[in-house]
Simulated assay, not measured.
Amino acid sequence: MARREVLVQLDDELIERLAEIATAEGTSRSALLRRGARAVIDAADLAAADAELVAAYRRQPQDPALVEAATRLAAETAPRW
C-alpha cells in the first residue's frame, strides 16, 4: 500500500511519550501513529454500526413477547452468586 507523508503538529510531551512507547515496543513513532489512526477509524466504524442497529430497532421494534421470554430465560439461567 502506498504511503503519503502527512504533517501533524504534536506537543513535546506527546512526542516524548510516543518515543518512549515506540522504543519499548521496538517500533517507530510513525507506526504507533498509524495504529492510533486505525484505532480511531475502527471506533468510528463501530459507532456507526451501533447507530445503525439502534435505528433499525427503532424502525422495527422487538416483539414484546420475545423480549419477555428472553428476560425470563435469562433470569432462570443466571448464576446465583
Rank of each mutant, 00 (worst) to 15 (best):
D63G: 00
P64G: 12
R29D: 06
R38M: 03
T23L: 11
L46M: 15
E16W: 10
R58V: 05
R34T: 04
E20T: 10
A22K: 06
A65W: 00
R38W: 00
V67S: 04
V54E: 12
Q60W: 02
M1T: 05
T77A: 14
V6D: 03
R38A: 04
Q62A: 15
R72C: 06
D63K: 10
Y57G: 04
R72Y: 06
R59I: 06
R59N: 02
R17W: 00
L14Y: 01
W81Y: 13
A2W: 01
G26M: 04
D11A: 04
L66D: 13
R35S: 11
I21P: 11
P61Q: 12
R59Q: 13
L33D: 01
R4W: 06
I21F: 12
A70H: 08
R38Y: 11
E13F: 02
S30W: 00
Q60V: 07
A75K: 01
A70V: 08
A56T: 11
E13K: 02
P79M: 12
E13L: 02
R72W: 03
R59F: 00
A47F: 02
L10T: 06
S28G: 05
A22Y: 02
A49E: 15
Q62W: 11
A55R: 14
I15N: 08
A39E: 13
Q9V: 01
E52T: 12
L46K: 15
A39M: 12
A78E: 10
A74S: 14
L10N: 02
R35F: 10
A55D: 09
E52C: 04
E25L: 15
A49N: 14
V6C: 04
A47Q: 12
A70G: 01
Y57H: 13
L53E: 09
V8W: 05
A44V: 09
A39T: 12
D11H: 01
I21L: 15
L7G: 02
G26V: 03
A70E: 13
E68I: 05
L46I: 13
A75S: 03
V67K: 08
V6W: 09
G36T: 00
E13V: 09
R3F: 00
L73T: 12
P64W: 10
R72L: 11
I15P: 07
A47M: 04
A55C: 01
R3Y: 06
R3K: 03
A22G: 05
D45K: 02
L46P: 00
A43H: 07
R38K: 13
E5F: 08
A2M: 08
Y57A: 02
E13Q: 04
T27D: 00
Y57N: 00
P79F: 13
E20N: 04
A69I: 10
L14I: 06
A37L: 15
T77E: 14
D42K: 14
V67A: 10
L14H: 07
V8Y: 03
A65H: 07
D12N: 13
A74E: 14
L18T: 04
A43W: 06
D42W: 10
I21D: 05
M1C: 03
Q9F: 00
R34C: 11
E5W: 02
P64Y: 12
A39I: 14
A51C: 06
L46D: 15
V40R: 07
Q62M: 09
